[in-house]
Write a protein that binds this DNA or RNA. Structure first.
Lengths: 383, 383
DNA sequence: CTGAAAGCGCTTACAG
DNA sequence: CTGAAAGCGCTTACAG
């Protein structure tokens, strides 16, 4: 059937494209019947539906997203705007895996993911607003939630499907999914305190981000509860800051005996400074991270980390967003509540982190897994 | 003007949306005139155009991409399909920066980037075919070019704008942009040979990828030309393979004195094996990489690398793709050549790599830049 | 330089 | 369960 191939690539439309009208003609029905059939809704007999479907396949019909969207159907696209520096996209293992999880679930439901990098939070809001105004997306996912985030009120105002990745709190009336960072922090502090550490130092990333602020608070509280000294420094996410802070900590009169870093990149940078200064990581001083990426597992000693599968996190976010879009979709009777923030919907879903103890806090752990059977040898990447 | 806000979020269409008809009424012209005005094409007087534009702004009109697309205008979207494992997305600094460069140029021209992860080359072809059939994209960029890539003939057949990232060769009649990997290889081999190394080992990634194959060939040729011994092993892109191959190389009767890795992740994994075996990297044995990421610069010793800005690479690809879409766009008279592969268009654009010498091949280099003034301290990430 | 009309491909009420 | 029609919001020839 080579005749069905596109012969005039440049020629737009002009009768060459296969449409539901072509199918209708062949099937001896009307275009409306075809629409019902291919969209799997009632209104046509099973026999007709089957016939229509097989003709559609035979003619290699592809629905026109533009026509569907114009007629009011969902555009089958989810949006995500990012206000992070370009380079970070590639150096953030967590984010890559998160996106992969998103994509997986979206693709399975025939949704596309539309991503855009902008350079300010204001531009994030503006892009989101335009996407909805243009009907380019059916919903959005909000990542990198900040403590005081202008996107939350803006999205509450828009009243469109939006899922916040982050919390608890600070996501207003919008539904959210998040990792329990307070719990993750307690796991780490407890592990170190249990091993006899009395002076902990948290080398933190950007305090404007909510999950960092939540870790900060939980760290202070847990250190108090466990009666250990906890110092807190914000170093930003790069390696430079982590190096500088680590060096500064070592220079103190009473240096810490355990360091907690927000990312693996930071942890490795800090570990390098420690090693250059003559400390043996895992033996003389402990190092741990909130991000359990391959980096943490290839380093020697392996880095103790608390984490959860970022792929799984992405899957959950996508699933929840699709639910929201479905809720707001065309099947819902007109009498839906005005605010998307009705109690049932705002309910957030939590992911519980897990602690993976390795050589950087417990030398015995690396010896036990020397054969390479790291318990976290799955695709887990965690925040 | 709070009245212009969307009051019924769930209610699709139904007269609430601002359209060109609303603008036309206010301006006392026809909708066609508005279309011409907002698209900046001739047919309306300057005075009318200005008036129309200001009314459009006042009414906060947003064009409907669906309606535009349905009427035959470009959909302002570029597509990119990836058949790589999910996790790799986040651990590939090169790729992240490349995407950032793409986005930057596309956004500036009001284009979106549509990305999709699939799990096989066949699915790549199929997705691309569907995207064009549905008019979801105006053009695509082809990355991760393989030596024998089914996408090339498929895209030649489709006759739609497609830019190949990779080469030279193997991109058929399609236009391409690429980094000169043969040249990069010569820079590395020459540098090492000049420093007196006589036994080089290349620890390579996946041989199915064209750029890897090109490096393989150039490596063999240049080693011969410089009369040095060159061994070649394919280890895949993970850290495991690099570790295993490195260990195996050390066990040989005549181990190499210099190792070349395809990525920084591989180089660091290899360096770790060397260090654990008691070798001092930079002093006893040289290590270099084809990827100049932040990883290469934070490691101690710093890793000598050959690279080019991945952001710049992305920008070039986007610019070239937009040219292609423009060429195939509506402004072109009907008499364009049938094949997109007319000589002028197939002309590929080359990016020349640069060698950055650091401590892993020349201890003096790191001492010189000890103050932190690494010459490659820009956003460069290279392949 | 401007107006009136047709059409892009689909979906959704509304009659039969 | 099926048919005929209107409409989504824009662009593009084609007349004036």
């Amino acid at each position: 059937m080579t005749t069905s191939r596109q012969d005039r690539p440049r020629g737009r439309g002009r009768g060459q494209r296969v449409t539901i009208v072509d199918i209708a003609e062949r099937a001896g029905v009307t275009a409306a019947a075809v629409s019902l059939a291919v969209n799997g809704r009632p209104g046509v007999s099973d026999a007709t539906r089957t016939r229509i479907l097989s003709i559609a396949r035979e003619l290699e019909w592809e629905p026109s997203p533009a026509a569907r969207a114009l007629a009011g159907a969902p555009v089958l696209t989810a949006g995500m705007v990012l206000a992070r520096p370009a380079e970070q996209l590639g150096s953030d293992a967590f984010f890559g895996a998160f996106v992969a999880g998103l994509q997986e679930v979206l693709s399975a439901r025939d949704y596309s993911l539309q991503m855009k990098i902008v350079d300010s939070p204001d531009a994030e809001v503006e892009t989101t607003r335009r996407w909805f105004a243009q009907r380019k997306v059916d919903g959005v996912v909000v990542v990198d939630l900040r403590v005081d985030d202008p996107r939350i009120p803006a999205l509450e105002d828009l009243g469109q499907p939006a899922l916040v990745v982050g919390g608890p709190g600070h996501h207003g009336a919008l539904p959210a999914v998040y990792v329990d960072d307070a719990h993750a922090t307690r796991l780490l502090v407890d592990h170190l305190a249990d091993r006899g550490h009395r002076r902990l130092a948290r080398v933190a990333g950007d305090a404007e981000l909510l999950h960092i602020a939540l870790r900060d608070r939980a760290f202070r509280e847990r250190c108090t509860a466990r009666a250990v000294t906890g110092t807190l420094d914000h170093a930003g996410f790069g390696t430079r800051g982590a190096e500088a802070v680590t060096a500064e900590l070592l220079a103190r009169r009473e240096p810490p005996s355990a360091l907690l870093f927000d990312t693996d990149e930071m942890a490795l940078a800090g570990a390098r400074v420690l090693q250059e200064a003559g400390w043996r990581v895992g033996e003389d001083i402990a190092v741990a991270s909130y991000e359990d990426s391959p980096l943490a597992r290839t380093h020697r000693p392996r880095i103790t980390a608390v984490g959860r599968s970022a792929v799984e996190y992405g899957r959950l976010a996508a699933t929840r967003l699709l639910e929201l879009i479905g809720e707001g979709g065309r099947h819902v009777p007109a009498g839906t509540p005005e605010h998307p923030g009705s109690p049932a919907e705002v309910e957030a879903r939590v992911i519980e982190p897990e602690l993976v103890v390795r050589g950087s806090t417990d030398p015995a752990a690396d010896r036990a897994t020397a054969a390479g059977t790291d318990p976290a040898h799955h695709e887990a990447l965690a925040r």
